[in-house]
Design a protein around this nucleic acid. Structure first.
Length: 484
DNA sequence: TTTTGAGTTGTTCGA
DNA sequence: GTCGAACAACTCAAA
């Protein structure tokens, strides 16, 4: 009879692809049991939100990095593909594991899946332990004075800050007892990378997936750009944001690490305090989105405000395609959509602009924008994506008011004043002068000639007139107000 | 207990 | 050219 302490412990990696500040890993090491790290590619658990295309590219590289880091500790990462519950069951039986550890996920389908797995393990006398690696505070621990979850961001974040510092991040273990390894898939066989065509070519120069890349990014940000964050974070033509979102989504770095690293840098380098606080408050928006999803499981599919169920959306496949391909004729919108396609990421300010354009200028259902982002963003995250689209559409928590309809020309002129961002992503407008680059249809003929731009040929005419579209959107919103 | 004021990210209009 | 008001409805907390 094998003693329990000799039986292996499955360490189930999911959206926590890191060794530092990984509570499930630390507890596994502390148990003294041999540790068997495993990742399961699960396209079979029912649910509409399979990992999107761009995120698969990231996942491939992140798993490769994690696998390398684990091997350095002497414990290879076991890869399996299939329904999570069946795979865990198989692995437990193959290895005689006595326990399974994992860090929590908050997607509704993941919670349901994990509950079922925990119950099944318990029934078989296998220990199942869950930990928090992904959030500063668990969603059920932040409540307003009535004991309800917050529905307004500022009050939510105030309450989080009042809780004081979140726990200090855990160090990465420097050694672990490895279990003898069962068979593993080879990551190449999972075909996570695009081939024909390879649309991810532009991703490689933009990103370094993996824990190491995440920390380099954070360090570089805290070194300098964080001081400019408050003033310049809305400028897509300037590198003033952290670009940590995909690293955060895959858990290559966690919010506790970001929190404490930022606070430490503030103390050590005399950082611009307001700027650093602003940065942390963006981490707060991520927390807010996660608790919204936790308390509202249909957030990705259905409007939080029920009256929006009757909103008069206009289905329009042609306009949707033009938006997706960056061919709307509005330069700032097209630049954003092309940046997204080329790099798997889009600057946050521009996300708001393109989202407002889809939802308010085109009146296309926000779920169609959400679906496109889900497939094309390397940082695609169910909570952030759903909450943010609902926020822009006006049907979410603490949402943008109905009358806030971004004017793509004004937004372009305000946040990309020289047109550098447009020139980078919409090269056919590269020779347009700044004064006209955000509204080429109003430019004089000689300016157009000199820039070599022919509307309708080298660059599209606007697919809608913004003024007309704005009136139409206000009318649509007033109709659900009356109906409500 | 009730009231009041403030609230991530905007635009337009008219003075 | 600049500036304030108006554009809902609701949540939350302070008074």
């Amino acid at each position: 009879m094998t003693r329990d302490s000799d039986r292996p412990l499955l360490l189930w990696f999911r959206q926590d692809l890191r060794l530092a500040d990984n509570p499930a890993l630390c507890a596994a090491v502390a148990s003294g049991q041999p540790v068997l790290p495993v990742y399961i590619l699960d396209d079979e658990t029912p649910g509409p939100w399979k990992t999107g295309g761009a995120a698969r590219w990231w996942l491939h590289h992140s798993l490769t990095a994690l696998s390398r880091d684990l091997r350095a500790l002497g414990a290879p990462l076991i890869l399996r593909r299939g329904e999570s519950r069946r795979m865990i069951d198989e692995l437990v039986r193959e290895t005689g594991a006595a326990a399974v550890h994992w860090n929590r996920c908050y997607e509704p389908f993941a919670r349901k899946r994990d509950e079922a797995i925990k119950a099944a393990l318990k029934q078989d006398g296998i220990e199942a332990r869950r930990f928090n690696s992904a959030l500063l505070h668990e969603p059920w621990t932040v409540e307003n004075k009535s004991g309800e979850p917050f529905r307004v961001y500022s009050a939510f974040w105030r309450a989080c800050l009042a809780k004081g510092d979140p726990e200090k991040p855990l160090p990465a273990p420097d050694s672990l007892v490895a279990a003898s390894a069962p068979a593993s898939d080879s990551i190449g066989d999972w075909e996570l990378l695009p081939t024909k065509p390879n649309w991810a070519k532009g991703f490689e120069s933009a990103w370094t997936p993996g824990e190491n890349g995440a920390h380099k990014r954070l360090t570089a940000f805290l070194d300098e750009a964080v001081n400019r964050y408050k003033a310049e974070r809305d400028r897509p033509d300037i590198e003033a944001t952290s670009r940590l979102s995909p690293h955060l989504h895959f858990g290559e770095i966690g919010p506790r690490q970001i929190w404490h690293a930022t606070r430490a840098a503030m103390a050590a380098h005399n950082l611009n305090e307001a700027s650093a606080e602003k940065f942390l408050s963006e981490v707060g928006w991520r927390e807010f989105s996660h608790q919204l999803l936790y308390h509202n499981i249909s957030l990705p599919e259905h409007p939080l405000r029920p009256e929006f169920a009757d909103f008069p959306w206009h289905e329009n496949d042609k306009a949707l395609t033009a938006w997706q391909h960056g061919q709307t004729g509005y330069p700032i919108v097209d630049a954003g959509m092309r940046e997204l396609w080329a790099t798997g990421w889009m600057h946050n300010r521009v996300r708001m602009i393109v989202a407002s354009f889809l939802v308010k200028d085109l009146l296309i259902p926000w779920q169609q924008g959400e679906a496109w982002f889900w497939d094309t963003l390397v940082d695609a995250d169910l909570a952030n994506n759903a909450a943010s689209w609902q926020w822009v559409a006006g049907c979410g928590a603490d949402a943008a008011p109905y009358f806030r309809i971004f004017n793509p020309v004004l937004q372009g002129e305000k946040f990309d004043p020289d047109g550098a961002y447009v020139r980078r992503w919409v090269p056919e407008l590269a020779k347009m002068p700044a004064a006209h680059i955000h509204k080429p249809w109003l430019a004089p003929d000689d300016v157009m000639r000199q820039a070599g731009v022919t509307l309708g040929k080298s660059y599209p005419n606007p697919i809608v007139d913004h003024g007309t579209a704005r009136d139409r959107a206000l009318d649509a919103f007033s109709r659900i107000r009356k109906a409500a």
